[in-house]
């Protein structure tokens, strides 16, 4: 596949990168490229300038702050997340989700920032970021900086709160409350077709706190009614199934070659139930 003619630059600093991104309305940041290069091959977007941010050290770090929160640079690759000592055994499931991303070659290039900014409904980090209550740090021209909560960050199909000329710098993920775990469950049909992420804290075999996010939707979607119904529910399959039965209410999944929206709505409660149970039983995929 042949890309359309395009210009390229490789800034040395974030400021330079933002300046370059503001030099043209069709400039795009090139991170790991594991999605953007495909967009360019298909000539599916008009891009006149690629701003290569892969070598910006300022986007690279993983930091654990004193309050237990983690700050992950947008340019950190999946492989770096999966292999990070700081994330080993972390209950937030970030390393595991990174380790399960696509395949080794993609993990060596693809970045968490690219994953959330591309905002493909099948991307695996957006629902996790929402479930974990992450905050996105976005930089703009002339030193502008703003924080956006993950819930407000994803604005639609392939769109986010990052505006033209802005750059995602890092993501801060707060500590989980003591004893909470993450359950992350996909139904995969070639690619993920339905996904749920649950953060659950139990007390005496009952759910004390719950967050539930449904993925594989244009916007990763929290289900507050289900979260409320889960509180006080015993950790049994029957009880959790009852509480998550409405997990698909009001959501509008996509139809494609793999599955219809109708089917996806039918299986969203199943993945929701499984994610909650996995979280309640100590984490990740259970």
């Amino acid at each position: 596949m042949i890309l359309a003619p395009v210009e390229y630059c490789r800034p040395d600093t974030i400021d330079e990168a933002i300046e370059a991104l503001n030099s043209s309305p069709d400039a795009r940041a090139l991170a790991g490229g594991q999605s953007l290069i495909n967009v360019l091959k298909m000539r599916a977007a008009a891009v006149d300038l690629l701003v290569d941010i892969t070598r910006l050290e300022e986007l690279k770090g993983i930091v654990r702050h004193d309050d237990g929160s983690l700050e992950i640079g947008a340019g950190v690759t999946y492989a770096e997340l999966a292999e990070s000592d700081l994330l080993a055994g972390d209950p937030r499931a970030i390393a595991q989700v990174a380790a399960d991303t696509v395949d080794p070659q993609v993990r060596h290039r693809g970045t968490i920032g690219g994953n959330v900014c591309h905002a493909d409904p099948i991307n695996n980090f957006p629902p996790l970021m929402v479930a974990l209550g992450a905050t996105m740090h976005v930089l703009g021209p002339d030193g502008a900086a703003r924080d956006v909560s993950a819930e407000e960050f994803f604005t639609g199909f392939f769109t986010t709160a990052v505006e033209e000329g802005e750059l995602l710098k890092s993501i801060t993920i707060p500590a989980l409350s003591d004893g909470a775990s993450v359950g992350y469950v996909d139904l995969e049909i070639g690619e993920a077709a339905a996904r749920a992420v649950a953060v659950v804290r139990t007390e005496d075999d009952q759910i004390a706190e719950a967050r539930l996010v449904i993925g594989c939707l244009p916007i990763p979607t929290r289900r507050p009614e289900v979260e409320q119904a889960l509180v006080g529910t015993p950790v049994t399959e029957e009880a959790v199934a009852e509480a998550t039965a409405g997990a698909a209410e009001g959501v509008e999944p996509l139809s494609d070659a793999d599955a219809t929206a109708e089917y996806r709505k039918a299986v969203i409660p199943v993945v929701a139930k499984r994610a909650v149970l996995a979280a309640a039983k100590g984490g990740h995929r259970g």
Binding site: L187, I189, D258, A259, T260, Y263
Partner: peptide, 8 residues
């Protein structure tokens, strides 16, 4: 027989 067909 993908999942949806078997589900149906």
């Amino acid at each position: 027989n993908p999942p949806e067909r078997v589900y149906r």
